[in-house]
């Protein structure tokens, strides 16, 4: 079983490649020194992180944007998936899947061009609302993808059975299909939340002065050079997402 051992060693190497950089980053966020030489345990960078007002505001903005766009995109995307499951609409599903593979930078500049164009006629400015709109727009396709995958495994006869027993189409959706879709919708919401919370490229283009997000601050700090506070923020985000995923796994296992 020489080949099996080779595969095992190789896989271990790939897993190290995937995880070690992040683990090192997390470890050094607890380093006393500002430099990448271990000098002892310290929570100094976390203290600085929590003391930073701009960071706090950005994190709050990110959270508000992510929550708002998750709720909207999950609702809209789920309805869309259901509608397309009943009968496909080529232009709509095609456009949504295309939006999924459109490079972020293209999505970002096209939205910026749209907002600038609209603002010529309508006195509003870039801000939280434009960011939320943009996030909803690009999250719908993710939600569609996840919910559709779940719908494909659903049995079409279930809705027939509901109608047959006297349920209206709306009741068949609400009382039968929607409950069955719950785990899929939860997974879709989680994905929408992460892509929204994580987005930098599109956000930075359509954000206004009052709507700086955490990734935007993080980006600016990362560009400026070595800063252990960035490692601390990264660790918090890393653990935050990790907890979120564990939570969702739990929820899916014991509904």
């Amino acid at each position: 079983m020489k080949q099996g051992r080779f595969l095992g060693v190789f896989a271990a190497g790939v897993y190290a490649f995937l995880h070690v950089p992040l683990l090192i980053l997390c470890a050094f966020s607890f380093n006393r020194s500002k430099f990448t030489i271990w000098e002892g345990f310290s929570l100094e960078w976390y203290r600085q992180m929590f003391a930073d007002g701009q960071l706090g505001e950005a994190a709050w903005n990110s959270l508000v944007i992510a929550l708002a766009s998750t709720v909207l995109a999950t609702a809209i995307g789920t309805l869309c998936a259901y509608g397309l499951w009943k009968k496909n609409s080529k232009w709509l599903s095609g456009s949504l899947y295309l939006s999924l593979v459109t490079p972020e930078i293209v999505t970002g500049i096209s939205l910026l061009a749209l907002f600038q164009w609209v603002f010529r006629y309508w006195q509003v400015q870039l801000g939280m609302h434009t960011v939320i709109l943009a996030h909803v727009a690009f999250s719908i396709a993710y939600v569609l993808l996840v919910v559709m995958a779940r719908l494909r495994t659903a049995e079409p006869a279930l809705e027939d059975a509901a109608l047959d027993l006297g349920a209206s189409e709306w009741e068949a959706f609400r009382l039968v299909t929607l409950p069955i879709l719950k785990p899929g919708i939860a997974a879709a919401a989680l994905l929408a939340f992460t892509v929204s919370f994580d987005d930098y490229v599109i956000t930075s283009l359509v954000a206004g002065v009052d709507s700086e997000t955490l990734p935007m601050v993080l980006y600016a700090m990362a560009r400026r050079g070595a800063n252990p506070v960035v490692s601390a923020i990264s660790t918090v985000i890393f653990l935050g997402f990790g907890a979120l995923i564990l939570l969702s796994e739990r929820m899916q296992k014991n509904p």
Binding site: L18, L22, L25, Y200, P215, L218, Y219, A222, A226, F241
Partner: peptide, 17 residues
């Protein structure tokens, strides 16, 4: 799993290295 972490954080991890 790493995919669920912020892309920015993952890129920064390499800058750090």
């Amino acid at each position: 799993l790493p995919f669920w972490t912020s892309f920015l954080v993952r890129t920064y991890a390499w800058m750090f290295l």
